[in-house]
Design a protein around this nucleic acid. Sequence first.
DNA 1: CGAGGATGTTTACAGTGTCAACAGAGAAGG
DNA 2: CCTTCTCTGTTGACACTGTAAACATCCTCG
Lengths: 218, 218
Amino acid sequence: MSTEKAGYHHGNLRETLVRTALTLLEESGVEALSLRAAARGAGVSAMAPYRHFADKAALLAAVADQGYADLRDRLAAADTQADPRQALVEQGVAYVRFACERPALFRLMLGAPSAGAAPGPKAPAHQPPGPQPPGPKKTAGSGYDILSARVAGLVAEDRRDTAVVAAWSLVHGLACLAVDGRLHGMPGGMAAPEALARQVTSLFTAGLVAARPPSVSA
Amino acid sequence: MSTEKAGYHHGNLRETLVRTALTLLEESGVEALSLRAAARGAGVSAMAPYRHFADKAALLAAVADQGYADLRDRLAAADTQADPRQALVEQGVAYVRFACERPALFRLMLGAPSAGAAPGPKAPAHQPPGPQPPGPKKTAGSGYDILSARVAGLVAEDRRDTAVVAAWSLVHGLACLAVDGRLHGMPGGMAAPEALARQVTSLFTAGLVAARPPSVSA
DNA sequence: CGAGGATGTTTACAGTGTCAACAGAGAAGG
DNA sequence: CCTTCTCTGTTGACACTGTAAACATCCTCG
């Protein structure tokens, strides 16, 4: 009760703002998610959010954090299979399913970083493309750990890092293409993205286990 | 001379606008690319672009078309190797290299569709997530054909569609992750994205050729 | 030379992110 | 109890955006 819960003026505005912003995002799209609209939805004035968030990007980051938590939970929940190959497939399917079920959130989380502060009066305008991973740092990092552990069970150690990057790239790319409707013209693209994810990740993991360089097979 | 070339009032505004917008995009980022800024850079008034583009999204689409052409050329230029496996790797590297060299353009081309018309007075606000591939229709479709042909040389016909989707997903995902700086915390992520692309696509193609279900190997 | 259409300008409006100055509510201390 | 101070929220303003309507200009065609 002493931390930040019960009522000052509004109650707890911060949480209300995040929830309102998330609703706005998922029901009306990114372009409808403005700071003023969130404030309006929370029943406060346009400047009130600035008592809880430094700028629009900070609100968006808070919304994205919700998404990271949900995604991490889903990946963990999909990691029940004992066979690492099956587990990897299920994780990939869960990743793509998340993206398809919550496309706007997914894009906010893993799209272009800090696309929030746009048309202000003073625009610093550019950022060096180097050091800026404001996204799935620690939260989705756990998801990354889960993925990494599963890949470790499938490939030799010298190819592990490459395989992890490849696995993430595969499902992330499929998720992006599906979410952005880029698979519609393709031969296999008419299938449900989840089914596609299953096929694609199965193909990938099959290749992983089949292409062992050490002298074991044959 | 009768088509649209020599001078009316400005010369050919349309091309100037596209060029200005492209420069703005690549030198100052998406958030600096406004219709008014493009007009300003072209030396005309804010409303002049509307004689050549229906709205901001149309300008962005024209800019993206430049990118599709460049990407297609690069993919074609990378397709010189005789060995389909090597050719596939080179295509993937070229794709990732394009994304890393022109990140803003890449995101405009293959990011969220129609993210142009944002804060107008009347906002229709949402689009059903179904039929909307305004991106690499015909242009990058040629790139798709090149990719498809190469994959066809590596896998059996019943897995071909899946393999094509997987290949595109793999390089597209890697490109997105690299462009958005999402690989910096990863074990193998410190390497140059091009080197990563080579490793990842090599691993993938190796798996493709190794995991043949018909009774040929062994 | 006059009509018409293509092209560009001015003005205006609604909406946005954000700064500055102000107002109310709840706690701290006399 | 009253004062003061610090959160919290409000009002007003500014610079900027995309875009509609009305007007001006210039080229071309008849």
